[in-house]
C-alpha cells in the first residue's frame, strides 16, 4: 500500500502551522502522530496534496496545571499521558483509557490531540473528554477559540473545527479529589476499536452520588455524552434499579453501525453492559 504524493511542511510554531493550513487550503492536512491519517493515505482513502506536520511545534507539547484546570498540549502522545505523574494523580481515567488505545508502538506516536480532533467515532479519548467536560483550544486564521468537547462532534469525521483550524490544547477541569472513575472498553483484541465503551466520572458523599458524568464510545456517528443517564444517577446510591434506568437511558441515545464487531442491537446492549461495569468500578473507587 502506497500513499499518493504530497508536499511536506514542518512548521515550528502554531502561527506558522495555521498560516500554512490557511494558505494551502483544502488540499492540506495537519498531521500529528499520523496513525489514523497515514493508513488512510496508504489505502488512498485520503490524498492530501500537502501535509503540515505538527511534530516540530514545541508549543503543542506539555502537561500542566492552570488554576483549576489541567492543560494538555495537543501533541502529547498517549505514551506520555500514561507516563505523566500529574495526570495519573489528578485525572487517572486518562491513563486508564490511553492504555486501552491501540498498542505500545502506536501509543508512542499517537497523540491525544489527534485522537480528539480527527472525529473518528472509534477513538477513545473523545467520549472521555465529553465525560470530563473538557474544552479544546482551537487556533485558526482568525485566532484562538475554545470549543466544549460536548459541542465538538457533529458526525463521523465531522467536527466543529473550521477549515485550517487545529486543536492546540485540551483543557480539563480537574475532577474533585477522591472521585470515582472507570473506562470500560469491550474490544476483540489489542489494537481494536471499541465494540462499545463507557467512561464514567463521579463523586459521592454520604453514600450518594453527588455528580456523575458518562461518555460512550463508538456506538454512534459521534462519541456521546449520556446526559440523561448522568442525571438519573446523580443523587442515587447507585442501586440496581437506578443503574438499570440509567443504562436504559444511555442505550436509548446510541445508534451504532452494524459491522464485524457485531450487529447494531448487540453494540447498543454492550454500551449498557460497559456502562454498568464502569459504574461498578467507579463506585468502588469513589469509596462507597
Amino acid at each position: 500500500m502506497i500513499p499518493g504524493s504530497f508536499a511536506y511542511h514542518r512548521p515550528s510554531s502554531v502561527k506558522e502551522a495555521v498560516g500554512l493550513l490557511g494558505s494551502l487550503g483544502d488540499d492540506a492536512r495537519a498531521i500529528a502522530g499520523g496513525h489514523s491519517l497515514i493508513p488512510m493515505m496508504k489505502l488512498r482513502l485520503a490524498s492530501p496534496s500537502h501535509l503540515v506536520d505538527l511534530v516540530g511545534v514545541a508549543d503543542l507539547k506539555g502537561i500542566r496545571e492552570d488554576g483549576k484546570d489541567i492543560l494538555i498540549g495537543a501533541m502529547t502522545t498517549q505514551h506520555e499521558v500514561i507516563a505523566s505523574d500529574l495526570l495519573t494523580k489528578k485525572i487517572p481515567i486518562l491513563s486508564e483509557t490511553a492504555t486501552l488505545i491501540a498498542d505500545p508502538q502506536v501509543r508512542y506516536v499517537g497523540t491525544i490531540g489527534g485522537n480528539v480532533a480527527n472525529g473518528d467515532p472509534g477513538n477513545d479519548m473523545p467520549a472521555v473528554m465529553m465525560c470530563l467536560n473538557a474544552t479544546y483550544h482551537a487556533v485558526g486564521k482568525s485566532g484562538e477559540r475554545r470549543i466544549a468537547a460536548r459541542e465538538f462532534y457533529q458526525g463521523a469525521y465531522f467536527t466543529a473545527l473550521e477549515p485550517g483550524e487545529i486543536v492546540t490544547a485540551i483543557r480539563i477541569p480537574t475532577p474533585a479529589a477522591g472521585h470515582g472513575y472507570a473506562y470500560e472498553k469491550l474490544k476483540r483484541k489489542v489494537g481494536d476499536y471499541a465494540t462499545a465503551a463507557a467512561a464514567v466520572v463521579l463523586t459521592a458523599s454520604g453514600g450518594k452520588v453527588t455528580s456523575c458524568s458518562i461518555g460512550l464510545t463508538n456506538v454512534a456517528e459521534t462519541p456521546l455524552w449520556a446526559e440523561e443517564a448522568s442525571k438519573i444517577l446523580t443523587g442515587s446510591a447507585l442501586d440496581a434499579a437506578t443503574v438499570k434506568k440509567a443504562v436504559a437511558a444511555a442505550e436509548a441515545i446510541t445508534s451504532p453501525a452494524s459491522d464485524s464487531r457485531g450487529p447494531a442491537a448487540y453494540r447498543t446492549k454492550m454500551a449498557g453492559v460497559m456502562l454498568t461495569r464502569a459504574l461498578g468500578r467507579a463506585k468502588a473507587r469513589a469509596g462507597f
Binding site: 465494540t195 464487531r261 457485531g262 450487529p263 454492550m270
Partner: peptide
C-alpha cells in the same frame, strides 16, 4: 466464537 455470536447464542437461550 467471537463476542457477538456467543452473546447472540446466549440471547436466544433467554439468558439476558
Amino acid at each position: 466464537h467471537d463476542n457477538w455470536r456467543t452473546w447472540t447464542a446466549a440471547d436466544k437461550l433467554g439468558l439476558h
